[in-house]
Write a protein that binds this DNA or RNA. Structure first.
Length: 238
DNA sequence: CGCCAGGCCGTGT
DNA sequence: ACACGGCATGGC
C-alpha cells in the first residue's frame, strides 16, 4: 500500500521550507520596527488584511502610540478610532489596553521582563488575555519576544490540508491548531535547536508569502512553487 | 456589489 | 468537545 519511497508528511513539511526559501528567498520578518509594534500588528491583523493594519499603525504612529508609553496614554475611546481601519475595533482596542495593563501590573511595564518568562508559562499567560488566541500568542512569542515556537496560521493549515499533510479539519478548533504546531516542531526536530527561532520565523513568513499569492480561501494554487512537489492537484477544492 | 482578510469569543448542541 | 455566527472595516 504505502510506498516507502514517498516522503512522510514530516519530511515533506520540512522540505517545503527549503522549497519556499528557494522560491522566495529569506524573508526576515516581521514587518515592524520594534517589538511592541509586532505586538500591535499581531492583534490588529486578526482576520484582517495587512493593508488595513498598516493604516491603523500609521494612525497610531501619527499620535505617538506605537510605544508602550504612548499607547498607555491614549484614551480607550481615541484608540478605538485610531484602529478602526483594521476592523473589530470594539474588541481590539480594549484588548490592546489589556495587554499594556498586564505589562504594567505584572512585568514592570517591560517587554524584556515579559520575554524573560519561561515559554510555556508565558504562552499560558498570553492566552489568558482577552483577544489573544493561539495564533496571536505565538506571533507575539516568536516575533516580539524571540521564543522558539512554531506558528500554525490559517495559511499553513490550508497548505497542509491541500497537500494532504494533515487530515482536513473544517471546523478549525484549538486542537487542530495545536496538532499543526506539533507537526511543525517535529518537522524541524532534526535541525539544531539554537536555530529553531530563526527557522520558525522564516517558515511562517514564507507561508504567508506563498499563502497570500497562491493559497487564499478560494484562491487556487496556480503558479504555486509547491504544487508539484507536494503532490496536490489543482482541481482539488478547499 | 460581493467576497475576503496573517482570529477570537460566546453560545448552543 | 465541537460546530456555528457574530464581530468592523476596507481592498480588490
Amino acid at each position: 500500500m504505502k510506498s516507502s519511497r514517498r516522503p512522510s508528511p514530516l519530511q515533506r513539511l520540512r522540505r517545503m521550507h527549503d522549497q519556499l526559501v528557494a522560491a522566495y528567498g529569506p524573508q526576515s520578518w516581521w514587518p515592524a520596527e520594534t517589538s511592541f509594534e509586532v505586538v500591535l500588528g499581531a492583534y490588529l491583523t486578526q482576520n484582517t488584511a495587512w493593508k488595513a493594519v498598516e493604516k491603523s499603525l500609521a494612525n497610531l504612529r501619527a499620535v505617538g502610540a506605537l510605544t508602550i508609553a504612548g499607547l498607555r496614554s491614549v484614551p480607550l475611546e481615541e484608540l478605538r478610532v485610531l484602529v478602526r481601519p483594521s476592523g473589530f475595533s470594539t474588541r481590539k482596542a480594549p484588548a490592546l489596553k489589556a495587554f499594556v495593563a498586564m505589562l504594567d501590573e505584572e512585568f514592570s511595564g517591560s517587554l524584556d521582563v515579559l520575554a524573560a518568562t519561561p515559554t510555556l508559562a508565558l504562552r499560558h499567560r498570553l492566552l489568558a488575555l482577552p483577544g489573544v488566541g493561539p495564533e496571536t500568542a505565538d506571533a507575539i512569542l516568536l516575533y516580539a519576544l524571540g521564543h522558539a515556537v512554531p506558528m500554525a496560521d490559517e495559511y499553513l493549515r490550508r497548505i497542509a490540508e491541500r497537500h494532504q499533510l494533515v487530515e482536513p479539519a473544517p471546523g478549525r478548533n484549538r486542537r487542530g491548531y495545536e496538532s499543526l504546531v506539533r507537526l511543525t516542531q517535529q518537522a524541524f526536530a532534526a535541525d539544531p535547536v539554537e536555530g529553531h527561532t530563526q527557522l520558525f520565523n522564516e517558515f511562517h513568513a514564507l507561508n504567508v508569502a506563498v499563502g497570500k499569492a497562491h493559497c487564499g480561501r478560494t484562491a487556487r494554487c496556480i503558479g504555486c512553487p509547491l504544487a508539484d512537489d507536494l503532490q496536490w492537484t489543482k482541481s482539488d477544492p478547499i
